[in-house]
Every structure is written in C-alpha cells, then in structure tokens.
Simulated scan of single mutants.
Amino acid sequence: MLDVTRLLRRAGRVWTGVDRVELAYLEALVAEPEPVWGLVRTPLGYVLLDRAGLIGFHRRLIGADQPSSPDILSRLQRGMDDTARRMLTDVRKLAVARCIPRGLAAMLRRHLPAGVAYLNTGHSNLSQRVLEAVQSVPQARIAVLVHDVIPLEYPHFQRTGTVAVFEQKLRRVRRYADLIIYNSADTQARSERAMAPWGPVPCGIVAHLGTIVDTPKPDEVPAGIAPQPPYFITVGTIEPRKNHALLLDIWERMGADAPPLLICGGRGWNNEAVFARLDALPPDGPVREISNLSDGALAALVEGAQGLLFPSHAEGFGLPAIEALQLGTPVMCSNMATFREILAKNAVYIDETNDKLWETMIVDWSKRPRDTLRVRDFVAPSWADHFKIVLGYT
C-alpha cells in the first residue's frame, strides 16, 4: 500500500523532486504482479484505492485522462486550485473504500491482507493515526523513505513552525517504522545521528534515487527567454539553503559584461533579501529569474547551458545536478558528501563559502569552448536498481 497523499495535494503544481519520487513508486508498484493499494488523506477522511484506482489516478496525474468537474464536496474545500479539486473528486469516485478519520484502522483491516507493506515516500500523512492504523493489520510492515534531515540541521533555513513539525514526524518514523529507506549513505548517517538520542533506530537501507530526464523541447521555451551561449543556469526553489546570494554577488562583481545567468525556480521562504535583489534586476541585465517552465523547456535550457551551478548549503540528493549531467551539461557544485557520493568524479566541487573560487571557475568556463566541457560518460542511478533494493526488503 503506497501513500499517495502528497501527489493528490500537489496536483496541478510544478512537481518537486519529492513529488517525482512518489510518482516513480506509483508507476513501479502498479507494474508489479503483487496486489497493490493506495492510501490518500483527504480533507474529510481517508480513501483507499485498488490497482485500477491507482492506475486511473496516475493517468489523470500525467494528463492521459482528464479529471472530472469538481463535485460539491470538492468545491467547498478552501486553499485548493481547480485541478486539485477535480483530482479530489475523482479520487473519491475511484475508491474501493472511504472512511472518516476515526474509521481508518477498521477500513484497513477490512480490505488489506495480513503482511501488507505500507510505503510512505513523500513525508506526508505520517501521523500517529495512520501508523497505528496500519499496525492494526496483522503482520503489517511500515517502510518510510527519508529524503533528508535538513530541517533539524539547518533550522534557520526553514519556514516558521516547520522544524517542530518535521521533528515530530521523524520521531514517529523512528518509533513505528520497520524499515527506513535512505536516498544516500550520507542521508542515512545524518538521519541516524539525529534519531539516536530518541531510542533504537530502525533497520535502514540505502537506495540511490533513479532519474528519468525529460526530453528537451526547445519549442516550449518562451520567446525571449533563451539567451545566446555561453550562459549558466541554476535550478531549484529560491530558498536560503540554495545559496542564490553567492551567485548574485558574483554576477554583481562581474558587471554588465558577465555571461547570462538563468535562475530557474519558484520563490520559497525566508529569503526577502534575495527576493529584493531579484526584483531590482534590470530587465536587460545578464541575470534573469524564470519560473513555471514546462519540464521540456527547462530540460532544453539546461542542455544548452555552459554549466549548471549548484552552490547549496545543504542537499538531500541533488536531482538537478544528476539530470544536468545526464544531458551532458557540466556541473559546478558545493563540496559536500552527498554530491561526492552520487556524482563522484563527474562534477567540480567548490566550498559554498569560497565565492572567489566560484567566480574564477565561472569566468574560466565561460571562456572555454562548450564542447570541451561537455560530460559524456556519466551513468546515473536507475529506478530499476533502486526498486531491486527496496522491493527486496519490503
């Protein structure tokens, strides 16, 4: 039973890396011969999907089928856009069972076989109610994918109030999970170090995340967005830990003759100083902020870049760097254990505080022929290898 609550909540938005992981699990599990279910937390309770329901849900997520018009219950929900309301309507239609919150345990015992494995990959719906309801099914097992513990390590980068919420989730994972799946050995070490003071830590396995690179679609790049080469690109939510300030400082020093820099991503939180600098950028200057690109358009811009710049203070995995290397685009990134574990010798590593060295390398790359920088032998982790590890344990 896969928890797909996050995918429902994110319907209609630009997918994040965590969203893509949950989607990959959905696609993999419905392709397996074993019986499969999906659990969804809705504003009014819980919904259980079977294989057919999950397939229908997936087809609507990827646009293969159009969702229904919102029903009355969905239209009454606040804070949801039209796409999410439509998906919520169809999730109820596709359900094999539904219940109010206090009926969850009984619903699961009624419909699930003994020994069911509950998988949660999105850090959503990890409530005591859900975990205890799953445990009420005979011989049930709980497996949770932990992407990172950045909120505990870098609380000053987080939204107000989110650190305590994350800590409580991780405490419940430590208490209830039979297995924790980690996206890297570095994440495992950091997570187990965080949980150790709370008691015994569950069994853990490392399975690097797979990546499926989107096909570059230059025709989807909005007119006037793609600059003349050489240009650089950075991809990710504009939040403090992504360290956009370092790049803005460098481009400010380089002046009007600097190569173009594309900052691609939506605005996040706790970053007012950076937002103010972005708002003050001259429209004809070398730095451009771009958001809401299609996956194909973003892939086209990454593929055409002189290099992807990734000066983050902290990362759980770093999917944009992996995707860039798969497209042949060289990567300049922070010197951190996670990147070295996944990217190995295929990236240039610089301490995220050494802005002078970053500037020197950026200037050097901007003057070199693009073909001399291209990456040609990078082999990315695959989803097939990931699921060979995970499904062997769960």
Rank of each mutant, 00 (worst) to 15 (best):
T5K: 09
L7S: 10
L8T: 03
L8G: 01
R9W: 13
D19H: 08
V21W: 00
L23Q: 10
A24W: 01
L26V: 11
A28P: 00
V36W: 00
P43L: 01
G45Y: 03
G53C: 12
L54Q: 04
I55G: 04
G56Q: 07
H58D: 13
P70T: 05
P70C: 07
L76Y: 03
D81H: 15
T83G: 00
R85D: 00
M87N: 08
R92N: 13
A97D: 15
H111Q: 14
H111P: 11
P113V: 10
Y118I: 08
N120Y: 02
N120S: 15
G122E: 00
P138C: 08
Q139C: 07
H147I: 02
I150A: 06
I150S: 04
P151W: 04
E153L: 14
E153V: 08
F157V: 06
F166P: 06
R174H: 14
R175S: 14
L179H: 09
A185V: 08
Q188F: 02
S191R: 02
P197K: 08
C203T: 12
H208I: 02
P222W: 07
Q228N: 09
Y231H: 10
V235S: 05
T237Q: 11
E239Q: 12
K242L: 06
K242W: 03
K242Y: 03
L248H: 11
D257N: 12
A258H: 09
L261Y: 07
G265Q: 01
N270R: 14
F275A: 04
D279T: 09
R288V: 05
A299R: 01
A299W: 01
A299I: 00
V302F: 05
A305T: 07
F310M: 00
E315D: 05
F317E: 03
Q326R: 12
L327Y: 05
G328W: 10
M332Y: 10
M332A: 15
S334H: 10
E341W: 06
N346W: 06
R368H: 09
T372N: 13
L373Q: 11
V379E: 12
F387H: 02
T394F: 02
